[in-house]
Nucleic acid binder design. Structure first.
Lengths: 346, 346
DNA sequence: CTGAAAGCGCTTACAG
DNA sequence: CTGAAAGCGCTTACAG
């Protein structure tokens, strides 16, 4: 049923040249006269010939494919933010003529999952990979970097690890927290609590440290009972507030959530307990999630430009793939305050 | 810097067997004694050996990769629904041990875009592909099917085209429209307008025909000025309402939108023109978009299970890839009414 | 400017 | 049960 595949031998025969010349035409070698090139191209076009990718790669070409690895215990299909990251990488890579092989890893403790990621690299399915959502120190990633693979990582800070094939992208969480606290201070708040993110990931402790630093700068008291453990999911925000309301001797007037999803959960819990946002308590998020502006109340948050980050990270990875990794080049993306209606002046 | 790659020759040498035997172990041939197998496996594990994928494919193995092609003129990164489809296919394929190469096509008229899609197939990067968002008759897809590639298509109806390598998935739009109109009729509505979707896609005319059929069944009059052209984007809903309000001699009491995004746009336009939903006019959507339940007012809609569809379609495609395509097997996924607050009894 | 030949790393009839 | 060998379809020094 399937037509016989046409290959370079056949093209060579039809064009009256050798396979070497066909290959030179395909790969744009300069030492092919225009006339010969055109003669070969004509046959190529006529027969709809595309060189077999596996043969090209086996002979030494790049795959022009990058791997995208999302680490998330949740059901990614329904997470808007993660989904946006996926498309963002695809679109950026596509602009460079690269393809994206996307993978979702539920649990980095799962040996099968780890094996399957390694397989993709060792099999040479891809030229490099991008990891999103991993712990700050993830053995799998460290092994791949040690093996010399080109790896882009969102959200990592590992002092001293400056291999040239490690590309690191972070948001300026310090600055974000400072913006949030400056804004709240301007509204008259000084009793400010925080719901922490996942402390295994770099952005968890980094946001918390930013909070501590900004609170100290203002001379605001950090009350341990207002520092609530959590992670980056909505449910954690909900639970954090339940805990706060049950056990705290008094309440803060404002709370900064590790991200907007956490803020949604927190606000839900506050509402269920008869507290109104922002009347009784102000809440500020982090990310500027697609839903934040549609939320009730519209969420004041620290906007972070994920698309811009993925754009730079994808570009940097592809550059290293094509030009080689000469030195470690981490970068940081800024953030800005977006004022909506979830905070009120005191 | 990069370690020398280990290959099957090396593994064979270390295990004291031939490359043939190493290959038989890797491919689980039955005629290898447990003892030999274990001896080889030990070396494979010890040296972290994974067979080179390009070599395997060149020697006749499958790529175990499927292509996912999203056709959408909009900026996909921000479209929640499309993003959900992407993750859904990835997760389903992954369960079968397949990888997904995702591509976004802005315009099927763009020759470069078309060429790049063909290239992926002809280069043998993938074993098959899934197309979402294409016109009912898309020459690119028809060419690929004619070439014998395994193709899954969402939203297509081409009578007589029943090639075994064509896999077609549709929603039951007829039934969806019937549910919507039955519900509205139950609330006392009979003056029901419709905002059509993209008529080049199968779901456009198919929803419209469902509307006509259900209206006829009830004996409700179809007023041409209440049949509004559009497409599947929010802006189209907005424009359709603007046009309706400017030119119609009287207004319907209810409007069915081609999908929820269109409904959002329609409601926005109604509000901007001082009309309240559902007080002045009832609106019903289609899809049950992730935002529909958070919308103001929460949107009544016809829910359609995209995940289920992608699940079946991905499974069917992989089955055909592995077992061969023997016959044409289209399928249809049902839908259900989700009542929220955007319609009111008359 | 161009062709013959080696080589990339596998799989799989074939022969024993 | 197992090895030697052909073959998959390219690319790229090498030699001319």
């Amino acid at each position: 049923m399937k037509k016989a595949e046409i290959n370079s031998t056949e093209i060579a025969r039809l064009a009256g040249v050798s396979r070497s010349t066909v290959s030179r035409v395909i790969n744009n070698y300069p030492n092919v006269p225009a006339e010969t090139r055109e003669k070969v191209m004509k046959v190529i076009r006529q027969y709809n010939y595309y060189p077999n990718m596996s043969a090209q790669v086996l002979a030494g070409k790049k795959t022009r494919t990058i791997g995208l690895f999302l680490i998330d215990a949740g059901h990614v299909s329904s997470d808007i933010l993660t989904n946006m990251l996926i498309s963002s990488v695809i679109e950026n890579a596509s602009a460079y003529g690269y393809y994206v092989l996307t993978n979702i890893i539920r649990n980095t403790q799962d040996q099968d999952a780890v094996r399957s990621v390694k397989e993709i690299f060792y099999q040479r399915r891809i030229d490099g990979g991008i990891f999103i959502g991993a712990a700050n120190h993830e053995p799998l990633i460290e092994e791949l970097i040690a093996e010399g693979f080109m790896i882009g990582i969102v959200d990592q800070h590992l002092p001293g690890r400056t291999e040239p094939n490690r590309i690191v992208a972070n948001f300026d969480n310090d600055r974000g927290m400072e913006l949030a606290i400056d804004y709240l201070a301007g509204l008259g708040h000084s009793k400010i609590g925080v719901i922490n993110g996942d402390m295994k990931r770099q952005s968890g402790p980094s946001k918390y440290e930013g909070y501590l630093k900004a609170m100290a700068k203002r001379g605001f008291e950090v009350r341990p009972e207002w520092v609530l453990p959590g992670d980056f999911h909505q449910e954690a925000g909900y639970q954090a507030i339940q805990k706060l309301l049950q056990s705290a001797s008094s309440l803060p007037t404002a709370i900064i959530a590790a991200n907007d999803s956490v803020a949604f959960g927190a606000i839900q819990a506050l509402h269920e307990n008869g507290l109104s946002v922002p009347r009784d308590i102000s809440v500020i998020g982090f990310d500027d999630h697609a839903l934040s502006r549609m939320h009730q109340p519209p969420l004041t948050t620290i906007r972070v430009d994920f698309m811009h980050m993925m754009n730079r990270l994808t570009g940097a990875l592809i550059k290293k793939i094509e030009q080689g990794a000469d030195r470690f080049e981490p970068f940081t993306i800024g953030c800005e305050l977006v004022v909506r209606d979830s905070c009120r002046p005191l």
